[in-house]
Computed example of a mutant assay.
Amino acid sequence: MENHKKVEQLPDWSNMSTEILEQFCKRLTIPNQVRFSSVCKSWLSANTSKKAYHWIPDAPWLVSKDYTNAQFQVISNTDKQAYKIFKPFKPLPDTLIVGSFKGWLILNSKFKLFILNLFSKLHLDLPYHSTVGINDIHSPCAFSLSMCPNMNPTAAAMVTYGGCLGWCKVGDTAWKYHYTTGEFYANVTFNNDKLYVVDRDGKKVKMFKYDEGVLIQVGSVESPRPSGNLLQSATIDMRIYLVVCGGKVLVVGRIDDYTKALKPNVKFVISMVEESSSMLVKVQSLDDHVLFVSNSNIECLDAKYCSGFRRNCVYFTCYFKHYITSEVKEFSVANGVVLRSILSMGHHMYSPIWVLPRFPFDCDCEKCTSAQWITPEKMEEKLVLELKQRRIVYL
């Protein structure tokens, strides 16, 4: 009698229930989602389904603005790794990242202005900034996007280097603009269907609503403190940001003081827009939130989503010559001082910018037009990370 060896049947993981696979996807960070999608077609399909799409809580990544390379150089603050992401467009010398907002990069070239989701390669053209329509230095210096509930862009606003405010809806062919003689804006953000703009001194914020393409001012707030002569010094540089933090709009001023050292002494001054009193009120605490600040953008997150980052702190990139940086430092809002360096990169990055690691996905809400530009074929272009090890030292 022959002895028949029992052959053990290995499970066919490709035939797992789609519902179970979608639950797995919802708990994976971006790099692990990419690895998950590369296992087989059924896993890829599960990861690109509408049910699986939502933001995985993750600290912002750093993306280099280097325009000479065919790839984006990125650093994940969660898994402490560096990656390369191939650019879905020809790397022209004049194509630069000029902003980032809620997972979307804003890129500017000689003839084109567009927004790009770094992790899916989906991109949307915006009107070219020369269509702002006034005699101005049109190149954008600050951006914000209005988002649907599922974080897809529905409208854009920008401030030009000449201090003009421009805005448009996704799909428009020209920017609409607002300019008042003698007033120069520094930054802009959306919140609760209103547009907020702050002046270059960080002392005045205006609120607008737009109806049928026309901006209507609905309020303004000012700082009770005099501006002083802080910006008159040649050794002091100040940048002004607007950010929504816990439902409130904050004015964040970054002050780089070069008076006593080659490397600047950095501090942050934060005020809250209090519309009921029409005043800017100094903020003593961010509570459970964290701010991430670069030269070109600012992001705010709940500290529970940012492993390794402390609540009530500002994390900012430090610049040396020609906007080259290799450090991220921590500023304590409670103490008003820089506490430590939390990231030292093994290689320098050119003017890195913070970007939230998230995918766009199809949405059927009233505000969103994503159905016009997200297709199943584009959703499956998610395998965009080339995993490369780089020397990164976390302190």
Rank of each mutant, 00 (worst) to 15 (best):
T29S: 12
Q232M: 12
D302C: 06
K248A: 09
C164E: 07
C318W: 07
K112Q: 15
Y161E: 04
F268R: 07
V281C: 06
K282Y: 10
F86R: 15
R340Y: 01
G166E: 08
R254S: 08
L343E: 03
K41I: 04
D79N: 12
H54Q: 13
H347E: 15
K204A: 13
G99P: 01
S42G: 12
V132C: 12
F89A: 05
C25A: 13
V218T: 11
V205E: 07
K41E: 12
G202R: 07
S307T: 08
G171D: 02
Y319V: 06
A82F: 09
P140D: 13
L301G: 11
I236F: 04
A70N: 12
L44T: 04
V39W: 01
I137L: 02
S76R: 10
L124Q: 14
P226Y: 03
T173R: 06
S49R: 12
D362R: 14
F111R: 11
G182E: 09
K382P: 01
A155Y: 00
D94C: 11
K304R: 08
P360K: 07
Q23N: 15
A70Q: 13
F143S: 08
K51Q: 15
T95K: 09
I134C: 10
M272L: 09
R390N: 12
L145K: 01
Y179W: 09
L113H: 08
T235V: 11
A70M: 05
S14K: 11
Y196A: 14
I392F: 05
I106E: 06
S64G: 01
Q33I: 05
W354M: 07
S76D: 15
H178I: 03
C25S: 11
A52N: 08
G253I: 05
M16L: 13
C306E: 06
V197T: 08
E19G: 09
V243I: 08
E183V: 06
K304W: 06
W354A: 06
L21V: 04
D58Q: 15
P376Y: 05
D362M: 13
I342V: 11
V244R: 02
K378C: 06
R390F: 10
K194V: 02
V338N: 01
A156V: 01
R254H: 06
Y241P: 09
R239D: 14
S276R: 12
K388R: 11
F320W: 15
T189L: 07
F89C: 04
S227D: 15
T95C: 07
N192K: 10
D362N: 15
M345D: 00
D12G: 07
K5S: 15
M151C: 05
C363T: 03
M349C: 05
P57H: 03
T78Q: 14
S37T: 05
L62W: 03
N15Y: 10
F86N: 14
I137C: 00
G246F: 02
I342A: 04
E299F: 03
S144M: 00
A234Y: 13
V74R: 01
N15P: 02
S139I: 05
K121F: 07
G166I: 02
S285C: 12
D66P: 02
L165A: 03
N77T: 12
V197Q: 05
V355M: 01
I342H: 03
K41A: 14
T259M: 14
N47W: 00
V188G: 09
